Simulated scan of single mutants.
Amino acid sequence: MLIVITSEEFVEDEINIIKRLLKEGLTTLHVRKPFFSSEEMKRWLFNFHAEEHQQMMLHQHHFLAEDFQLKGIHLKEEHRKSIKGKEQDFLEKIKSQGWVLSTSFHELQEVENQTLFDYAFLSPVFTSISKHNYEGKKFSVQQNKRPVIALGGIKTENIEKAYQLGYQGVAVLGCVWHQENVITSFKNIKKEYKRVYQ
């Protein structure tokens, strides 16, 4: 699984760039806009067609996933805490909507115990491109039974290493959005991802 996470900062022409990424074969876009109100998120989502919505995982304002028939939702740690003790009811609701459910962890022990989610991010695997002083820990997940996606410092040069560490895919942010040409950067990542994983 190759995932792109949106930038939380302003990106010029972002909507058209995302449409291009989806045309170039991106199948999962994580929409992470922590500073958006629900109204701003709604307006942002209105820029896309139904088939594009079906490739999107939403990090905030989860109720909009139903309104726009998105691919699924991503739970942060605070969301996981809010459903503690009610996991089964929550999961049944998610499945009844046909959504994919993901989350993220920062410790290997946490991800080893996860059973609720379709997949989980683990970070930082490598030293982050978008966050300063965020050192990579090179976690190995070869023994993990559920899909784990490598996040943190992913670039073309270390996708093969992520595969060797047992990850079922990679999620990228900085190596796409912090480059001069986002589309070219994505194409290079995708080419290396296909070489390693397929």
Rank of each mutant, 00 (worst) to 15 (best):
residue 122 L to F: 03
residue 70 L to W: 00
residue 34 P to T: 08
residue 164 Q to C: 11
residue 32 R to Q: 02
residue 17 I to K: 15
residue 24 E to I: 10
residue 32 R to P: 01
residue 53 H to L: 04
residue 94 I to R: 02
residue 123 S to N: 05
residue 45 L to Y: 04
residue 67 D to A: 01
residue 26 L to S: 07
residue 47 N to L: 07
residue 152 G to K: 03
residue 117 F to M: 03
residue 55 Q to I: 11
residue 119 Y to M: 06
residue 99 W to T: 00
residue 20 R to V: 12
residue 4 V to R: 02
residue 189 I to V: 15
residue 33 K to N: 11
residue 90 F to H: 08
residue 71 K to D: 00
residue 136 G to N: 09
residue 148 V to G: 00
residue 155 K to Y: 12
residue 19 K to Q: 09
residue 188 N to W: 04
residue 22 L to P: 00
residue 69 Q to C: 14
residue 132 H to R: 15
residue 80 R to E: 03
residue 195 R to P: 08
residue 139 F to I: 04
residue 165 L to K: 10
residue 165 L to S: 11
residue 26 L to P: 09
residue 2 L to W: 04
residue 7 S to K: 05
residue 8 E to R: 06
residue 117 F to P: 00
residue 110 E to Q: 05
residue 7 S to F: 00
residue 147 P to H: 13
residue 28 T to A: 05
residue 26 L to H: 06
residue 151 L to Y: 05
residue 64 L to Y: 03
residue 142 Q to A: 11
residue 96 S to V: 11
residue 39 E to W: 08
residue 39 E to H: 15
residue 31 V to W: 06
residue 62 H to K: 11
residue 143 Q to K: 14
residue 197 Y to V: 07
residue 22 L to F: 09
residue 39 E to L: 13
residue 139 F to A: 08
residue 153 G to E: 04
residue 153 G to D: 00
residue 157 E to W: 05
residue 103 T to L: 05
residue 40 E to T: 06
residue 103 T to K: 06
residue 74 H to W: 03
residue 149 I to C: 14
residue 38 S to Q: 15
residue 196 V to P: 02
residue 120 A to T: 05
residue 111 V to K: 01
residue 196 V to N: 07
residue 94 I to Q: 02
residue 71 K to I: 00
residue 98 G to N: 07
residue 114 Q to P: 02
residue 118 D to C: 00
residue 44 W to H: 09
residue 146 R to P: 01
residue 157 E to H: 12
residue 114 Q to H: 11
residue 137 K to L: 09
residue 190 K to V: 03
residue 194 K to W: 05
residue 79 H to W: 01
residue 171 A to S: 11
residue 117 F to K: 00
residue 62 H to A: 10
residue 58 L to I: 08
residue 154 I to N: 12
residue 130 S to V: 00
residue 175 C to Q: 14
residue 176 V to G: 05
residue 31 V to N: 02
residue 141 V to S: 02
residue 181 N to R: 00
residue 110 E to K: 00
residue 74 H to G: 02
residue 19 K to C: 03
residue 146 R to L: 06
residue 41 M to Y: 11
residue 3 I to Q: 03
residue 114 Q to C: 08
residue 181 N to C: 05
residue 97 Q to C: 07
residue 5 I to A: 07
residue 60 Q to I: 03
residue 121 F to R: 04
residue 139 F to Q: 02
residue 147 P to L: 11
residue 112 E to G: 08
residue 141 V to I: 08
residue 135 E to P: 01
residue 115 T to C: 10
residue 121 F to M: 09
residue 56 M to N: 07
residue 75 L to N: 06
residue 40 E to F: 08
residue 88 Q to I: 12
residue 134 Y to F: 12
residue 128 S to D: 08
residue 195 R to H: 12
residue 175 C to W: 07
residue 99 W to A: 03
residue 124 P to F: 03
residue 163 Y to E: 14
residue 93 K to G: 13
residue 2 L to Q: 01
residue 194 K to L: 09
residue 15 I to F: 13
residue 65 A to Y: 03
residue 108 L to V: 00
residue 17 I to W: 12
residue 72 G to P: 01
residue 195 R to A: 14
residue 61 H to Y: 10
residue 27 T to E: 15
residue 78 E to R: 10
residue 112 E to C: 01
residue 160 E to F: 14
residue 130 S to C: 10
residue 74 H to T: 01
residue 4 V to Q: 04
residue 112 E to W: 00
